[in-house]
Design a protein around this nucleic acid. Sequence first.
DNA 1: CTTATTGTTAACTGACTTGCCAATCACCCG
DNA 2: CGGGTGATTGGCAAGTCAGTTAACAATAAG
Lengths: 394, 394
Amino acid sequence: MPRLAGSSKLLRAMNESAALAHLLEPGMLTRADLRRLTALSTPTISEVLRRLTDAGLVTVVGHNSGRPGPNAEIYAANPDAAYAAAVSVRDIGASGAPSVVGALCDLTGAVRARIESRIDFLRTDPKTALVEVVAELRAKAGVPAERVSHVQLGVAGSYDSGAETIHHVDVPGFGRAGLVPEIAEALGTHVGVDNDVNLAAVAERRRGVGRQADGFALLWLSQEGLGLAIDIGGTLLRGARGGAGEIGYMPLYAPDSTHRKVDLQDLVGGAAILALGQDHGVAGRTPLEVVLAAAADPGAGEFIAQLADRIAVGLAAVIAVLDPPLVVLAGPVAQAGGQTLLDAVTGALHRAAPLESTVAVTTIDDDAVLLGALDAGLGAVRGALIAAIRDNQA
Amino acid sequence: MPRLAGSSKLLRAMNESAALAHLLEPGMLTRADLRRLTALSTPTISEVLRRLTDAGLVTVVGHNSGRPGPNAEIYAANPDAAYAAAVSVRDIGASGAPSVVGALCDLTGAVRARIESRIDFLRTDPKTALVEVVAELRAKAGVPAERVSHVQLGVAGSYDSGAETIHHVDVPGFGRAGLVPEIAEALGTHVGVDNDVNLAAVAERRRGVGRQADGFALLWLSQEGLGLAIDIGGTLLRGARGGAGEIGYMPLYAPDSTHRKVDLQDLVGGAAILALGQDHGVAGRTPLEVVLAAAADPGAGEFIAQLADRIAVGLAAVIAVLDPPLVVLAGPVAQAGGQTLLDAVTGALHRAAPLESTVAVTTIDDDAVLLGALDAGLGAVRGALIAAIRDNQA
DNA sequence: CTTATTGTTAACTGACTTGCCAATCACCCG
DNA sequence: CGGGTGATTGGCAAGTCAGTTAACAATAAG
């Protein structure tokens, strides 16, 4: 909005962008609706829609009826105008969980294909693996290559978008400098990379409890570790080199500096949960099993309380720094804890933290990282379409 | 930029806004300069400038010379088009420091008047006190009332802009609900309120070490307490109810929950510094004197090291959550510590925090809160002017 | 058949651009 | 030292582009 100047061509570009933007967030709109939304006159709306349909970005999807006069045409973004692909990469877990899940959606967000596969990245190059996954997704959905304009990657690590390098990543091969541009080159698309927890927060924003919030801090608790994503009014805070939210390494203060190296990971990481479970006699061979068992067993109250206290330690620091309108507990462990854990954490926070924050548990049952990656990719595709219209006409 | 639609009137409004914006950040520009900056044609620039000068917002301040051709006219924003006032309110310190400092600047940021006074808010109503201070500022600068369009307040507390209420404030009378709208009503101007530390960060962004940074976290260390301001690309993070950065109350983890109620304030607050100084035999009756003495005395290395360790505890949490590109130490205590303290904190952080962040000390010698309040007020005034042009023409 | 609604066509307006021109100043060469 | 040369400034006129208002034909509900 500031410092934007230009001629009448800019005006048309803006108006077309605005109309497309309204049709993208997924609206089935008549000309009259668009007139209300954009405050443009009827002839202009007609012209804009004519151009957008000519460009193949918008189609007539139906006709209004039941009202006097001619049946108004209903317009919507053409689902097949562009597609976004998303791939979530993780280390092969102890449980043998799939190391790669991918999905492909059309412009409206409808999932057209989905893949899970186990790839051993010790033996496969990330680039070839990803190209293969995306090719398979395209084949499954029957989509031509040139229509997939963006591929979104989710990894358990921090992404430095300036250096285009993934840091702190465990999956072999993904930490190599220059990998991301190579992947983009090989795929022939834009490639976005983000932290898995950040992507889960994107999903939470669009589909979960974060929908209405001004912002939220999402604490991700999984068997492997913990992470934090910070949503401020819909945009994620990534930090200087993508390191924001890496609270697993947050050192904890020890009054007497005898044991210095305690960090939050030692407190609520998988190993810590397992140990805490053993101390309290909660059965389970994995952290997830332990929490699941404890949540179902009313006798495990002490375990839950202790775990909640530990979680509150980390959250208290986050709340003191950020004062988020909402705190979301997400990730497998948090979901396993469910309402029981939520209540305990809420109680612990009220005792520990000075500011009162609302706490909630994810409402996303599906793979939040993958969904978030789809949402992020879709956002990028839509943004690119809008920008292309804005620039092509300039 | 997104979802902005309109007719040619919008276009002109945008172009005028853009030109004014360029002239405001303080530029002395010729028509040719504006042509380059806005990519508009000569006749358009002429028309825009004609309108802006007619409105009294822009004036010819000189003529170019030394180049072939006619001497180009140099335009600049009219300093007297609008003024901003700023008032920093604090509790009466033990040292009897002035409880209110105020300043008034013109549209270019030049300070036209400055006041310091000691007001006992136990006996004076905040509203009448502020009205008086602003009136005195106007009188001193010889500025008509209607030209002062914005008054910026700085207080040691958190401001909930939604509820228009100041929380966690020590100065008597300022915590009352409805006070801020009343003040605005009485002054007949817009009134902005912000945390003093946030305002110091604004000053740091415009005049200090934060000028070039993508963002920074500013840790404010004063005799009264500590605070944190978070600058992300030039905008401050305020949190849900203005509580972001209230890290004084951040609880610290105690492994054995024997002494639970330790928070950061207990570690690096004024009382803590005083006590730490006594432990290490550093002379001084106030925290400031202690730090000042220690910074000058090479024998006080242990005190400085301990203090730095404690500061690093808080900063480590901040860095883990935010990963700021830069950390700024500010406030009286930090300035007293100077380079000595900076080196110690840098060292302590490298040992404690996983991510490496650059640390710096303020370069602002003057009253950072007041300057920041002026900057913030000026920003509001400029924004209002630009918006007014954008809307008046619509 | 009336009436409300849709969408098109025509005339007009506002704002920016290109192209042309006069005026002015620096610089250089005679 | 003075006049020519050339770059630069800023104004004016004509043309273009996009959006608005107004009038109108067409269509479906009641």
